[in-house]
Design a protein around this nucleic acid. Sequence first.
DNA 1: CTGTCTAATCCAGCTTTGGCAATC
DNA 2: TGATTGCCTTTGCTGGATTAGACA
Length: 893
Amino acid sequence: MPPFVPRKRVSSEDPPPAKRQARPDNFQAPFHLSDSDSDSSLSDAPEDLNKGNATQASESEDEEEDIDWEDAIDTKTTATTPTVAAPELQDLELTLDQNETHVSDLLDGKKGPSKIERQIRIQTHCMHVQCLLFHNAIRNAWSNDSKVHEILRKKLPEGIRKEVKKWRIASGLELPEPKPEPPKSKKKGKKAQKNKDWSDESERLEPGQPDMSRGDPIITLIKVLVAYWRKQFRITAPGLRKYGYRPVSALESAITDFREEEHDPERHGERIASLDEFRATAERMQGSRDVGAQLFTALVRALGIEARLVASLQPLGFGWTKGETYTPAPSKDTENEEESEGSEPETDVAENKRPAKNKRKQFDSDLPFPIYWTEVASPVTNEIISVDPLILSNPVAPFGDTDLQANFEPRGAKAERAKQVICYVVAHSSDGTAKEVTTRYLRRRTWPGKTKGFRMPLEKVPVGPRGNYIAFDWFGMVMRGYQRARKSKTAVDKLEESRDLQPNQPEKKRTTQTADTLQSLRTSTEFVLERFLRREEALRPGAEPVRTFIAGKGARAKEEPVFRRADVLKCLSAESWHKEGRQTKPGAVALKRVPIRAVTLIRKREVDEMHRQTGEKPLQGLYSRDQTEYIVPPPIQDGRIPKNEYGNIDCFVPSMVPAGAAHVPLPGTVRVCKKLGIDYAEAVTGFEFGSKMAVPVIQGVVVAAENEGLLRDAWKAEAAEKRKREELKAEKKILQTWRKFLFGLRIMERVRDEYGGDPDADRERDSHNPFAVQKKRKEEPDDGDEEMPDRESYNAIDHGGGFLLPGHEDDDDGLIVDHHDQQQGYAGPSHKDADHADHADGTDDNEPFESGCPTADSHVSISSGSGNEVDNGKGEDSEPEYVPRRTRRTRGP
DNA sequence: CTGTCTAATCCAGCTTTGGCAATC
DNA sequence: TGATTGCCTTTGCTGGATTAGACA
């Protein structure tokens, strides 16, 4: 069962397109990043985004990504969204009242969330994720702003500038200056000096080479920058965080408060409304820890280093865990959580109004992990280095260092309390594109890891006839709007995608060696406990347990034998075997006895009666395949077909047709047999269930083999005759319709003659006369041409004389329907069963799949797909696909 | 942190031979 | 008048899979 379905899809619908990787060359990044655009304010940004989207939308076909983030902005587009328009997604009418049931109420009442509540959370989650993505894209664009860069660059003290220079030289990005500089490391200085002594040729080459003797020089620089940033940047506002779902009343008051009160960062969150304000925060070097990370990214970019703004989204979830339940943000003195709990955050605002003395760790000090950080790409190695400028004690995680990278993954009780999660980690590049980098930060890079329960899981979308699924990745689809085109992938992309972003396969636990647990045994494919056997499973007689397992502890400990899965047999009731053409061998003892499942009224009554008499639930035996054998009916004698108590013969599989008999699965054969006076029995090929009844499905008859040819010939003759009758009838009907039409026209003509009026005026009037308009429309198939068909020239059969006759399109005899996938599977004799091929050799073709149309030569072109086209086109001799008939019980003659 | 147990939901699959009225 | 056809309804229960949460 796919537990979380983001958007219901009709199963018949095509799976989401997997393409849309390649983007045209003129792809527009979601927004402008050019320096010239640096004056744009926030209000411009969405516009730019929408522009970008419009381009995308026109580029992509009508694909699912319409539900990208733009839907969150422009509701008009939703109408065109195919997924949203899926039939199952109807408007939900929600009545939310103040005393709305809250999560805790649900849990107290021991009632899980309903399907609709789940859907609401899923939709909320999806929307929130997209909003956050969009928000981050904007912040990323701001972090790319040249004025911000300038501000940050100007603030750099001399020491840092020198470090930058040192790095540039060490990375081979810049030639060392001829004279050794004092702040340079001795080594570099020496090297530079040395170079002077070298030949001209080597002098040119060597300085351009990076010096990797101490690892990537950029790491040193980053560490310096982080130290600088931690010293300089002051956290003066709360950042983003996950609060959980609030009761509607609380939500309402929070929204009202947000709208009507003067903006207070501590109550309403930090607000940076425009790029100008962002520049101001850069100038002041203060803001939330999130903005700190964004500005740090800007700083790194300002130094000419490729840097990505990474965001670990903290969206509202879709589950019902504690993590999704609203708890107010703890007050700044984190210790007093109780105090602030239940009260609105505003209560503790006043006392903390003034800037605190301890500069950092004041806001969000309960959040042990960053949600924004920076990924720096080394220009030398193309490796990505993760940098957290403010929070973590190990701020720099080099490429490939799984342990240090996993430090970014929220875990532990503190993170849980603060509702910090990892589900989607997205890195925004300076060119406006973004990519998902969650894998890098997962412990052991193993999915789903801690994302489980917080990230939309892959949705199984059925494809093909049955049992085939493809995985639909909702987030992947959302990210397609941000991703860099495949062909513009950089060396950095390629390197990380082949290494850091390659997920590890979760190692499979070998149950053979590790100690048994109830769970491991339950899921094991190798071993099984007797209590885990399914209803229709039984142990092979004489199966020996391979070991014992002790379940429970102490006094409740219980020893249970562990069996091999290989010793488990699939069992069926005698009736079920019968349906497969098998019967229990004489003397077979049921391997298992299970309660009877009665479906039909009659069986139910029987079971109830037995239950009343014995006081126990009646059981039925289940047998394994080994305990059964093919039902081999005795050969027929003297052309007489044996019949069961209902007067028909069971033909669930070909082998059930007795030797010397043949199954003719054609409709109406009963009448033909009667006419011919040959013995027959209606063939029951399966059952249909409905209205507490099992109704046999009858497909033709079983007759003696020697009568088969006779029957088929007679049937064909009869079918031809029937077809002819129908054609005549159709012709008659068509003529009648024409006649009526002609009369109508004549009447109209006469009315016009008698009551006058020129035709143009009539037409004028008609345009206001709905009846006339309607009539005109009806005439349109004839092009409104007044010319009457010639009685001789029109061909009633080919064109229906211009009229569609009732029954024309649903003519059973004419329509070829593919019934290959029908429940019964067996639609006629075949040579499938090698054991009993001799029983089936009375027929040499697969009648049910023959195509062709007895009535119409022109309008049916649907082929059965059987490939048997012997009679195709002739019409006269073809046998139609047999539509099995549900029938009532008919006592034998 | 892992495992066990319980409760709940959802879904797939098993189920095995009517009755009455209208029409031919 | 008897035979044939059409319509009714679209089961309904059970067990398995899965999830979540409490608790050890």
